Computed example of a mutant assay.
Amino acid sequence: MTQQQLALDPGFGGVIVGNIGAIALYAVVGLILMVFGFYAIDWTTPGKLSALVRNGAPNAVIVTASGLVSMALIIVVAIWSAQGKLSEGLLSALIYGIVGIIVQVAAVRLLEWVTRLDIGALIESDRFAPASVVVAAAHVALGLVVGVAII
Results as ranks from 00 to 15, higher is better:
Val69His: 02
Thr45Ala: 04
Ile23Trp: 14
Thr64Cys: 05
Ala107Met: 08
Gly143Tyr: 08
Ile150Met: 06
Arg127Val: 12
Ile151Cys: 05
Gly84Asp: 10
Ala51Thr: 09
Thr115Tyr: 06
Leu142Phe: 10
Val145Asp: 01
Ala93Glu: 08
Ile119Leu: 02
Leu68Pro: 03
Glu124Trp: 09
Gly89Thr: 11
Asp9Arg: 15
Leu144Asp: 09
Ala82Pro: 04
Leu49Gln: 05
Val69Pro: 02
Trp113Asp: 13
Thr64Tyr: 05
Val148Arg: 09
Thr45Phe: 00
Tyr26Trp: 09
Pro130Asp: 10
Gly97Val: 10
Ala51Gln: 05
Ala93Asp: 08
Glu124Cys: 07
Val77Tyr: 03
Ile23Tyr: 15
Phe38Arg: 04
Asp9Ala: 15
Val145Ser: 02
Trp80Met: 11
Tyr26Gly: 11
Arg109Met: 13
Ile23Met: 13
Gln3Asp: 15
Ala149Cys: 11
Thr44Ala: 09
Ile32Asn: 03
Ile119Lys: 02
Trp43Leu: 07
Asp118Asn: 13
Ser132Phe: 00
Ala51Val: 07
Gly11Gln: 05
Arg116Pro: 02
Gln5Phe: 10
Val28Lys: 03
Ala72Phe: 10
Asn59Gly: 10
Gly143Asp: 11
Ala106Trp: 03
Ala136Thr: 05
Val28Arg: 02
Gly30Val: 06
Ile74Thr: 15
Thr45Gly: 06
Leu122Lys: 08
Gln5Pro: 11
Ala7Asn: 12
Ala129Arg: 09
Val61Ala: 08
Asp42Pro: 00
Ala131Thr: 11
Ala141Gln: 02
Leu117His: 06
Leu6Met: 13
Gly18Thr: 14
Val29Gln: 03
Gly143Gln: 10
Ser92Arg: 01
Ile102Cys: 02
Leu144Val: 14
Val114Asn: 07
Val63Leu: 11
Ala82Cys: 06
Leu117Gly: 01
Val28Trp: 01
Gly14Ala: 14
Leu52Val: 08
Gly13His: 15
Val76Phe: 03
Gln104Ile: 00
Val108His: 03
Ala107Cys: 08
Val114Pro: 04
Ala131Val: 07
Ser50Gly: 10
Ala27Arg: 03
Val135Glu: 08
Ile150Leu: 06
Tyr39Lys: 01
Arg116Asn: 12
Pro58Ser: 05
Ser92Pro: 01
Ile150Ser: 05
Ile41Leu: 11
